[in-house]
Every structure is written in structure tokens, then in C-alpha cells.
Design a protein around this nucleic acid. Sequence first.
DNA 1: TTGAAAGCGCTAACAG
DNA 2: CTGTTAGCGCTTTCAA
Lengths: 339, 339
Amino acid sequence: MPSGLTMKDVAKKAGVSLGTVSNVINNIPSVKEENRQKVLAAMEEMQFIPNMMAKQLRSSQSSIVGLILPTIQNPYYAALAEGVSSAADACEYSTMLFVNDRDPDKEIRMLGDLVSSRVAGVIIAKSSLPIDLMEEYSKRTSIVLLDSMMYSNLKVDVVSTTDYEVLMAAVKYVREMGHSRIAYMAGDMIFTSAVNRMEGFKAAMHNYKLKIPEEYITEDNYSLESGYARGVALLSLTYPPTAIICANDILALGVYQAAEELHIKIPEQLSVIGCDNTTLAHFVTPRLTTIDQQMHAQGAAAVQLLMKRLKNPSMNEMPRTYILQAQLIEKNSCAPVKE
Amino acid sequence: MPSGLTMKDVAKKAGVSLGTVSNVINNIPSVKEENRQKVLAAMEEMQFIPNMMAKQLRSSQSSIVGLILPTIQNPYYAALAEGVSSAADACEYSTMLFVNDRDPDKEIRMLGDLVSSRVAGVIIAKSSLPIDLMEEYSKRTSIVLLDSMMYSNLKVDVVSTTDYEVLMAAVKYVREMGHSRIAYMAGDMIFTSAVNRMEGFKAAMHNYKLKIPEEYITEDNYSLESGYARGVALLSLTYPPTAIICANDILALGVYQAAEELHIKIPEQLSVIGCDNTTLAHFVTPRLTTIDQQMHAQGAAAVQLLMKRLKNPSMNEMPRTYILQAQLIEKNSCAPVKE
DNA sequence: TTGAAAGCGCTAACAG
DNA sequence: CTGTTAGCGCTTTCAA
């Protein structure tokens, strides 16, 4: 590819100095209008496109935001990515996307690459970075974490939703439909959101003075298979739950399949609540009542947090937390208990 | 953020010259082992992370691949993005992601940004860039197009699937189940894949000497609403189709909703084929027979094409086309016609 | 208001 | 095999 013209070429053609061209490009007002026009004309004519790398190297500031995700095939992370990408775009930043496949080594390498690229900041979802590395890297770039492990005392910002509260709301929702045998299907408990949700669930059950049989709480991965297997197990109990709250929509669909197989009707005989409000929730029958995690908004919030730190580097060293309101989205998978 | 140590600092600490440090970092074999160790030790101790921007500026070669998509919330593009990202990662490239929201102006700006960043190459899905701009940009960076408008005579590489053939296969599939009233629900006809599929459909119908009533072919956007509306219209005809082939899975789900509303049973009374093999196809009842577009593989192929051009810049000026095999994925939404 | 000049951190010749 | 040096294309003083 042609290596591209430089500002020097533009300057020559416009008959001004390199500095003036720079001033025009950066909208420095002190440029004489006549010269500005000359430069603009030259740039247009030569189809000049400035070299970002040189600009960023020289000014040692980047207009790139790094984003590290476990995957992007899950609509949940896709929404996050779009939130980040569009918010960054609105601030004239670009997004560098890395998918780590839940491989901790890849996560480390990718974060290293991002630091190496001297990006403005990095947003990481579901980080499981060892705390010493997180500390190390957080000294070298601004980091915003979404639903990751707990890193106390580190200067990393955090975006999250009201996991605790919304789980309470979910319990309340089915409780008020008369349910008392309520199960919770959790995901991987190393992440903050999982922990908070679990606690919200337990607290709500406790408030209602409802017993939680040991078998009603399960922890496993987020797959359809796991949802199905756990669904079958739950529904085969002597006292099966009449409502199941799942840590994501996929698990809930696994429960749908388990229920279908056991000829248990949803929502008449079993209420199901999912989590994430993915498109899936919309397309299954019955439509799945689910918890909206506002991933798009979370992505945008993460970018905002980053921008704040960049604009004010001397900002309070304290990490900031931005908490969004998770919401129960009422659809058709829950119904009052029938006696 | 601390601006970071430089190779100069490393050189000083290791007691060697800047050049030697560079040689160590770039694995130039001529470095004396003793010095290599000293440099490595110094880098380790100082936690040195090289500055990519400087490296890329100086060597005027980037290790970034640009990716422009209409959206990433559609699993179809998410799979593509993951394919690109992971293939790029395997080649030690990073991915810069842009989501243009189907806004042509954004697409132009984003491509400009990418060229400005002097990325190694750009992969664009569903490009609708005016041909003159495409020509202009294709001179300045390597471009690989996926399912875009036709740009003849331009030096842009293309990745696609066997759209024509697979549509023929789809028709064959339902034809052999006895269907003869087969409708095709198309998408936006400015893109190559849409054109090819349509032609494949018509050719297949022609081969089977089947009539295509005018109402059986519709063109509109890819939304659920459109699928529903067109589904209702088709199924309300005096001679409604017994099989509907849709240009994507979402449309097919719209047809599901239309059928449900009209109390038409799928697949007993109506066969439906989708396209894209998104997770949705897997989760609906009955599972949707669909066409797999291999988006993940397409993404990886796009990266390969780029890599080939980079390794061999003097490569044949001819644009290359990489065609992947689309596949009909048989699930449960089609059945033989009942008389 | 502008031009000249000094680098940003790195790579790649080149001499030694 | 290593050190020195000249830039990559840009921003940013600093004088003029």
C-alpha cells in the first residue's frame, strides 16, 4: 500500500509550514483564514489522511479503548460490546476488541497487548486475573471491570447492576403469586454478580421465612445442558420447586426442555425466571420472564467512567463504582400457583 | 498513567546499547547469549512493556485488523466478529471493531479512521460504500468484503458462501418432500448474497418446472415484524405456499408467529426454512431447519485473505474470492406435504 | 500568526 | 556481535 502522504507534503503544496498544517488539523483558532483555506484545499486535493500512529506517539495519548470479553457469541456480551463500541464512537474513540475464550492466559496476554498499545483504557468483563497482575496493570492503564472477581483496594473502576436487589425482586414477584417452593440455579460463583445474586436470593427467602432445601440451590456452568440436567433433577424431587430462578436465560431454556420432557407445563405448573433478557427470552414459548442486566448501558457506563478518568487524571485515586438498575422484565413464564 | 519506561532505560540498566535491546526484543539471533540474558533480566525487573505505537510508526507496519459491521447484536455478526478476532489473534494481530448501525456515513468515517490508523487491513460486512470511495480506499488499505454490494473491477477481496447452490439445495429439500408451492422471503436485494440466493431459488424452481406466483416472492427488511407480516400475507392467500424459505432466521420466526396466529401447524401444515443457523434456530419449537452461513469460518477466511496479501504485497493485483460451503442444517421445521 | 527545530520510542542501516 | 545514528509523521515549544 502507498505509505501515504505526510503533513510535510501538504505544507509544501499549500505553501505554509508544517506547524501551520498541524494547527489547521487540530483546529487551533490562531490560523489566518487564508492559510486555513489553502491548507484545507491542499489536503482535499491530495486526499490527505493523517497518520494516527504518529499523532498518538508524539502526543502520547491514544484514542483507543480496549475491550476484553470471554466471548462475543453470547448475546449478553454482544450487547455489552455494542454499548462500549457506540459510546466510544460517540466520544471519537475506537474500540479494540479481544475475545479471550475464558482462557486466563489469553486474558493476561491481551491485557498486555493493550498496555503495549498504550490505549486510553481497558474495559474487561468477567476478569479472573490474579490480583497481583491486576494491581500491576492497573498502575499502567485505566481499567474498568464488569462482573469480575472482587479486587479490593485496587484502583480499578467497576460497573455493575443491582444484582442483590433484583434477585430479591424476583423472589418477591413469584412469592406474591403464591409460590413458596422456589429454587435458584446459580452460575460460576467466583464472580461478584453471582455472589450478590445468591445473597439477594437467600435474603429474600429469609425475609419471607421460606425454607430453602439444600437441593434447591445449585451451582454449575451456564450451559443449556446444565440447565436441562439441573431442571430434570429439581423437577424429579419428591417436593419439586414450583418456581425456578435461573442465573441466565440459557439455563432457563434448559429448564424449559426439562419441563417439556417431564410433561410439566410452563407457566401453569412451573414458573421460570431467566436472567439477561437476551433475544432468546423473546422468541421462546412462553416468552421468558427475565432480568434485564442492561448490558448495553453497562458498556456505555464503562466508557463514561474511563472518560472521566482521562479528563481528570488527578482524579480521586479511589476506584469508582457505577451501579445500574437491573430490572425484572415480566413476560409469560410465571403464573400463580394452583393448588 | 506513568508514561512507561523505554528501551533506552532498559539498555542503560542492562549495560548494553539501545540496538541490542531492540535485537533481543525482536529475537534477532545474532545477540550474544550473555547480553540477551542481561537484557531479559533488566526488562523483567523493570516490567518493561514495549511501545507498540512507536514500533508500528517506525516500522510502518501495523498488527491491527479493522472490522466494520452493521451491528454485533445479531448473532450472525457476532459469530463473524469472533471468527475474525480469533483468527487475527492466532496470527498475533489485534482487532479494531467498529459498529456502523447500518449508517453509510458512519461506515465512511470508520473506514477513514481505520486508514488513518494505518491498520494492516480492513474487513467489512455488508458494505454499501459508494463505488468511488471504495476504489479510493482500496488503494490505501487492503480490504476484504463479506456480503456487500457488488464492486466489479476493484482490488478488494471477497469472502462468501455458496448462496446460489444452497438455495437450490433448500428447494430440492422441500421439493423432495413433495412441496410444490414454495415461497421465498428475501431480504435487502442490494447485497450480493441476497441476489445470488434469489437466483438460486428461481433456478431451482425452474428446474423443477414449478410456477412461482408473483406473491410468493417478497422483498423487505430482515425484521421479525416483516417476517410476521409477510407470513400472514402469504398464508392468507387463496393458494398459500406449503413451504416458505426465509432469508434469515428472524424472518422465519416471524413466520412461526404468523402460523401460530392462523392456527397453522409447523411442520405438519407448513414447512419453514431459515437462514444463518443462529442459536435462535436451536431454541424454538420446532427447531428450525436453516442454512448455515459459516460466519465464524467466513471471519477466519477474511483474515487469511488479508494475511496472504500482507505477506505478498506484490501479489497478483487481481482480487481474490474465497467461497465457503453453505450448508442446509436439517432440524424439525419441515415435513412432507399431506394431501 | 508563523516557521524552525526538538523530540515521542522505536527500527534498521551501518560501521566498527 | 554491538553501538551509533538517522529518521517514521506528528505535536509542541520557542523565536521571530
